[in-house]
């Protein structure tokens, strides 16, 4: 009964994913290849990691538009640390997650303690952080990442032999995604604070009455999001082998679109890891399909915008309908 229900909830979006995949592979057979799938995986790892953090934020009824500037900042710090401090992997990861967490903490404090609406608070931090990063880097690329780290980034977890001698493999960075998903899963599923995230999203007053501390939970959520962004920044830097301060312009929209597509409610309380991962996959497949079908990349933005508005509109329309048909009096 339990698994049955879970399946039903995410079923529609899985079906959409399948249908769209079929359409794309009919249009271009290159879609249904292992190479393409590994490609999609590699180029969307960062999006997937960040979607976990955004999911948590949206579960509390919040939103974060500063994620792209935070990952840029962390990537710059990471790059600097690699080049000037140490190319030790663990140290690098530590620097990245610490700086991400601090920035997330700042957002959390603004939202929980100063009661600034999340959209306005994160808009402000976005401007501050991005401004600082661009000032320090002057907007130019940072190259000269140590070989040791680049070598690490080239590693594959599993390789698949192919006919033409090329080695296809699951990139090492997949581990970061795995850690992000497992950590998110652990928090949401196994910890009391994780259930508190759902509880305050569902009924904040009751949650408070029950003994949860909403402010603390909100601060935690934004800090954890920063932590995940730290992981994403390391994965990103090891894939790109350089730091481009402009790489993430507008990226927050993609993260939000993927999470919304995965069924998370913008009003908080509803959303699952599985749903979000499928949402991310769907989003990536659509993007990949646009490329494979030679549709200009500008369409991507149009699609992102329409996905956000469309998903929420459907959500709203359904909610209104249930509200309208609610029985108010048990008529004799």
């Amino acid at each position: 009964m339990k698994t049955k229900l879970l399946k039903i909830k995410e079923l529609p979006i899985i079906l959409i994913l399948i249908v769209i995949s079929i359409i794309i592979s009919v249009a271009n057979p290159a879609f249904m290849t292992l190479e393409n799938f590994l490609d999609i995986l590699k180029s969307n790892l960062v999006l997937a990691i960040m979607s976990m953090g955004m999911l948590m934020v949206m579960l509390t009824g919040g939103i974060d538009v500063s994620v792209s500037s935070v990952i840029t900042a962390v990537a710059v710090i990471t790059g600097y640390s690699l080049m000037h401090w140490s190319s030790n992997l663990l140290f690098t990861i530590l620097v990245a997650v610490l700086s991400g967490t601090v920035m997330g903490l700042f957002n959390g404090l603004l939202i929980a303690k100063l009661k600034i609406p999340p959209i306005v608070a994160t808009l402000g931090t976005m401007s501050v952080i991005l401004g600082l990063v661009l000032y320090i880097t002057n907007g130019t690329w940072m190259t000269g990442i140590p070989e040791k780290f680049i070598d690490f980034g080239r590693k594959k977890l599993i390789t698949f032999p192919t006919g033409d001698g090329k080695a296809l493999g699951i990139p090492i960075q997949f581990l970061f995604l795995l850690v992000a998903v497992l950590a998110t899963w652990f928090i949401l599923r196994k910890t009391v604070i994780g259930r508190g995230i759902y509880a305050i999203g569902g009924n904040r007053d009751s949650a408070e009455r029950m003994g949860f501390k909403p402010d603390r939970i909100i601060i935690f959520v934004y800090a954890f999001e920063g932590f995940l962004i730290g992981l994403a920044a390391v994965a990103h830097t090891s894939i790109m082998r350089q730091v481009d301060p402009n790489a993430f312009l507008g990226f927050e929209m993609q993260v939000i679109a993927a999470v919304v597509l995965g069924g998370a409610s913008v009003l908080g309380g509803y959303g699952s890891i599985l749903g979000t991962l499928i949402g991310v996959s769907l989003f990536c497949v659509i993007n990949n399909g646009l490329i494979l079908m030679h549709i200009p990349t500008f369409w991507q933005k149009i699609v992102v915008g329409l996905i956000i508005i469309g998903s929420i509109s459907i959500d709203m329309t359904q909610k209104k309908r249930t509200e309208r048909n609610k029985t108010r009096v048990d008529v004799e």
Partner: peptide
């Protein structure tokens, strides 16, 4: 439709 202005215009911005 009743979408909150923040999200509607966020989507519209990219659109």
């Amino acid at each position: 439709i009743g979408v909150t202005p923040m999200l509607a215009t966020l989507g519209a911005m990219t659109f």
